[in-house]
């Protein structure tokens, strides 16, 4: 009934193909183009002095008011589309123009660091129990 949790991923992680198809993700980017007849939008983000473009299928969130150049948050499932590569089928697309992207990235990294540290700690704590 409830959809899977949409975990934050950076746009460059999504297009690198490291995420399994069908996984729920959320990501951000600047809307650079929108083809309404194909229900296809492109979000773009800069990382390591490179532009990374993520293709978003917008059928489920239409009609929406596309503001070219604005920051968007998209939440949906990844799928491999022919000719495009990885595409996000959006269930949610919110305009968040004015967002502090650097701070958002920091928050995402902070959350990941926390989970990593905790898993490390749990693994360490569990080891003596295994030995017994």
């Amino acid at each position: 009934m409830l959809p899977a949790a949409a975990v934050f991923h950076f746009p460059w992680e999504i297009i690198s193909g490291s995420i399994q198809e069908g996984e729920s993700v959320r990501t951000f980017g600047r809307l650079v183009s929108y083809q309404s007849e194909e229900s296809r939008a492109t979000l773009s983000a800069q990382h390591a002095s490179k532009e990374h473009n993520v293709v978003v299928h917008t059928l489920f969130v239409e009609p929406f008011n596309p503001i070219i150049g604005a920051q968007y948050i998209v939440l949906g499932e990844t799928e491999n589309a022919e000719g495009v590569g990885v595409m996000i089928r959006a269930r949610l697309m919110n305009c968040v123009d004015g967002v502090n992207i650097a701070l958002l990235q920091k928050a995402i990294n902070e959350q990941r660091r926390f989970f990593r540290e905790r898993e490390c700690k749990q693994a360490k704590d569990a080891q003596p129990a295994d030995a017994m």
């Binding site: 009934m1 409830l2 959809p3 899977a4 949790a5 949409a6 975990v7 959320r26 939440l75 959350q111």
Partner: peptide, 25 residues
């Protein structure tokens, strides 16, 4: 968290809330 699911009954709403780590009713 973000509402990703919604159901309305006479007396209550049921919202699915997603905080990026899980979804809960």
């Amino acid at each position: 968290g973000t509402v990703v699911y919604k159901r309305e009954r006479e007396d209550f709403f049921c919202y699915g809330v997603d905080d990026g780590t899980g979804v809960i009713n």
